[in-house]
Design a protein around this nucleic acid. Structure first.
Length: 427
RNA sequence: GGAGAGGUGGCCGAGAGGCUGAAGGCAACCGCCUGCUAAGCGGUUUUCGUCGAAAGGCGAACGUGAGUUCGAAUCUCACCCUCUCCGCCA
């Protein structure tokens, strides 16, 4: 959520930001209503002040058993007036609030103008594309040959868009989760948290999934509960409605969770394989930091995610999302795109964002800059470290051999119970 | 699921229609005092909104929302949450 004061005082900035994102919102309407609201508010507060004064007098008179009937008359009519204004004010406030919740964040100055993912500038590259003496297979074919992932069973148990992993495949999943968490907690200073996989509507609003992206969430029928689309939601909301000690910042958290997404807007995209599923595992890293350091923290958060791919020996590039590709809540996002030789393209495997105070304002996460000073909003950041399903895709496609066997990367071996090679299974 | 108790400031805890943003204590901070420390004495310390250049003024907040009343932390209703006991259960 944007600061309503910035909206008021810096209309041009907001309009330019919206235009850069390629979205337009009826701001004119907002300004008119906001003015009306302030007008009414002042009136109501004046009247309340009057009423408070007279009420006090009534109390005094009654205590001295004097006649207060004149004052009672007067205050009663003030009350009626307040009621009337109050009603309109309530309606206005609700309209304005729900509108402000639908305005996206203002892109950071380092975000370039662009319309689609085609326009995202590449900011760095690590490693290089692996050469194969044969035409590399796509991961879903490999997974079938290795018998480690079963899409049909997933569809049978749930519906299409779900899968299950089996044997060394399930082990690989668990190994990656542990490897990621170990690096984050032992080497990078993150505190591991094990969080609820469902959250309430307030939490979803806090991080920006609601109200705009309802159609992408799985909701529990009859409850104010949603399956989380990423552990960013429960983790960022750990400190919702709190004022944190400055000394406790920055706070680094990491969490594993399954993620549930309807992918409502992506029907027909990536229908085969593990790339786009309704449920996938992910390890997330989250930071709550002081505003002045948040862009440095974004760079280091990005590195914390990159290291994982480097250890796994997977070639990737990093892109800086252009204005048109930027997510609703983010001010700046780096996507890490891993090379997939089977598909012959780069695919997003991690998304690292600085939300500045956008989420903090929605969720009410503050800190005290110094003694006696007013509380200020923290900046929140998060990134995948990493998406497990897509990492499996990358390992299968990059470490495949001509007989369709797949070599387990060295970094994962300590977690693989002695398994060093996945072999095709005769059926 | 059944029965009961309860939700007040950073924490503990009083208040049971008006002078209560809230006694008292703890904690923190600032003075004073004191070989050091501790103790003691005096003072300060919630948040949001609004007006203001600022000082400050005003409005709001005692789980949430609605109601009664001139006036609600205090009365009424609904909801949420926490705890205890019983049942069930990983």
């Amino acid at each position: 959520m944007l600061d309503i004061k910035i909206l008021r005082e810096n209309r041009k900035l907001v309009e330019e930001a919206l235009a850069k994102r390629g979205s337009s919102l009826p701001l004119k309407n907002f300004y008119e209503k906001d003015e009306q609201r302030l007008d009414l508010l002042r009136k109501v507060e004046d009247l309340k002040h009057k009423r408070n004064m007279i009420s006090k007098d009534i109390g005094v008179k009654k205590a001295q058993s004097e006649d207060a009937s004149v004052l009672l008359q007067e205050v009663k009519s003030i009350g009626l007036e307040i009621d009337e204004y109050h009603k309109t004010l309530g309606v206005l406030e609700e309209e304005l609030n729900s509108f402000v919740l639908t305005i996206p964040n203002i892109p950071h100055s380092s975000v370039v103008y662009g319309r689609t993912s085609e326009d995202n500038p590449v900011v760095k590259t690590w490693g290089q594309k692996k050469e194969f003496s044969f035409t590399p297979y796509v991961h879903d074919e490999l997974a079938l040959s290795l018998d480690i992932i079963d899409f049909e069973k997933g569809a049978k148990i749930a519906t299409s868009g779900f899968s299950l992993s089996r044997g060394p495949g399930a082990l690989l999943e668990r190994a990656l989760i542990n490897f990621f968490l170990d690096v984050h907690t032992k080497e990078q200073g993150y505190t591991e948290v094990c969080i609820p996989f469902m959250v309430n509507g307030a939490s979803m609003t806090g991080t920006g999934q609601l109200p705009k992206f309802k159609e992408d969430l799985f909701k529990i029928e009859g409850e104010d509960l949603y399956l989380i689309p990423t552990s960013e939601v429960p983790v960022t909301n750990i400190h919702a409605q709190e004022i944190l000690e400055k000394a406790s910042l920055p706070r680094y958290y990491t969490a594993y969770s399954p993620c549930f997404r309807k992918e409502a807007g992506s029907y027909g995209k990536d229908t085969k394989g593990l790339i786009r599923q309704h449920q996938f595992n992910k390890v997330e890293i989250v930071k709550l930091v002081e505003p002045q350091s948040s862009y440095d923290e974004l760079e280091s958060l990005l590195l914390d995610a990159e290291v994982l791919l480097q250890r796994l020996g997977l070639h990737y590039r990093v892109v800086n999302l252009c204005s048109g590709d930027l997510g609703f809540s983010a001010a700046k996002t780096y996507d890490i795109e891993v090379w997939l030789p089977g598909q012959n393209e780069y695919r997003e495997i991690s998304s690292c964002s600085n939300f500045e105070d956008f989420q903090a304002r929605r969720a009410g996460i503050k800190y005290r800059p110094s003694k006696g000073e007013k509380p200020a909003f923290v900046h929140t950041l998060n990134g995948s470290g990493l998406a497990v399903g897509r990492t499996i895709v990358a390992i299968l496609e990059n470490y495949q051999q001509d007989d369709q066997s797949v070599v387990i990367p060295d970094a994962l071996r300590p977690y693989m119970n002695g398994v060093t090679l996945l072999k095709p299974v005769q059926k």
